[in-house]
Design a protein around this nucleic acid. Structure first.
Ligand code: FES
Ligand code: FES
Lengths: 162, 162
DNA sequence: ATATCACGGATATTAGATATCCGGATTATC
DNA sequence: GATAATCCGGATATCTAATATCCGTGATAT
């Protein structure tokens, strides 16, 4: 069971754009530079975040991406689902209805308890991801990077923002 | 993010062998018949369950698979991890160390908070799966199949057990 | 007018999941 | 002891999803 590699990228990008000066945007190319990932592929994930209304996209010079909402209103789950999708990890194929002991369809109103357990585990996973917002991540001591790196990051904004 | 299809198979097989008469075993071929899945591929998953000491394998005539431990001691998580592996779904590539603001390695003693959040969500998922045992699944009303199907299942044992 | 940027479709590449087959080892039964 | 049933693991084939790139189009600040 693996999440898309883009989830790590998307979360780090969300934290970075949350630190932007007000009303500025960061182009996809700069975000790729900053994180050392393939620009064309990162662009795809950023478009997904834009479609999910997590990021705002601004075309043209001085354009790029910025947060579409206050960082307090964007949860980690929002970002994960925007990139990885909302399909459940456990795929129930109703295997219980196969084979020699199969019954009529109406007998299967009660959901399979295996299915129920797997679904509740995924609910717990999602609940945990919903507990943390991008703002929380930015506010954490050390956040996604040591304080010294954050300082460097702010310097870097001066360099790359036209 | 998807779990192997074999997880559903493995859990249903575990429930079925938990219902076997004492000291009997069910061959892989019968388990495949019962669930309507490809025999050769199910066999692979059963071997994984055997390696994980969740099932006992008995070679020869009247052989097959049975639970290696009391059903109360086998959790859903045990089965899931035996089949799907224990690799975390979220793969942190330490992306924070890339790019223009990279610092010396010693600066990264504090773990990335994004990584921490993702890991705790997976812990919550595992904790939920650990709460339910195969015995619990068997004992649930309806279990993985309606009661009428369980009755048919017991009849079916008479047919297929030599 | 021009340069910068997002967007989405088409496409290539790679890795992993799914699936099958077979030869060798084990053991109950006759 | 011969036979048949069964598990085991390796080799291999196939299919699907993830990863990755490219390019034409449209928007917009300067
Ligand atoms: S039938 Fe799908 S999990 Fe039981
Ligand atoms: S560096 Fe991997 S999640 Fe932050």
């Amino acid at each position: 069971m693996r999440l898309s590699e883009g989830v790590e990228w998307g979360l780090h990008c969300a934290v970075l754009v949350a630190l932007l000066p007000p009303d500025r945007a960061l182009p996809a190319g700069r975000l790729a530079d900053y994180h050392g990932v393939p620009p064309a592929y990162l662009a795809k994930h950023l478009q997904a975040l834009s479609r999910a209304q997590i990021l705002d996209s601004v075309p043209g010079p001085r354009g790029g991406y910025r947060l579409a909402r206050p960082a307090t209103d964007v949860t980690v789950l929002d970002v994960v689902e925007a990139i990885d999708g909302t399909e459940p990890a456990f795929r129930c194929t109703e295997i219980r209805r196969q084979g020699p002991t199969r019954l009529a369809t109406r007998e299967y109103r009660v959901p399979c308890s295996i299915h129920v357990v797997m679904a509740s585990a995924e609910d717990a996973w999602r609940a945990e991801l919903r507990r943390t917002s991008i703002a929380d991540l930015v506010g954490m001591v050390g956040a996604s990077a040591p304080p010294a790196s954050l300082a460097k990051g702010l310097d870097w904004f001066q360099e790359v923002l036209p």
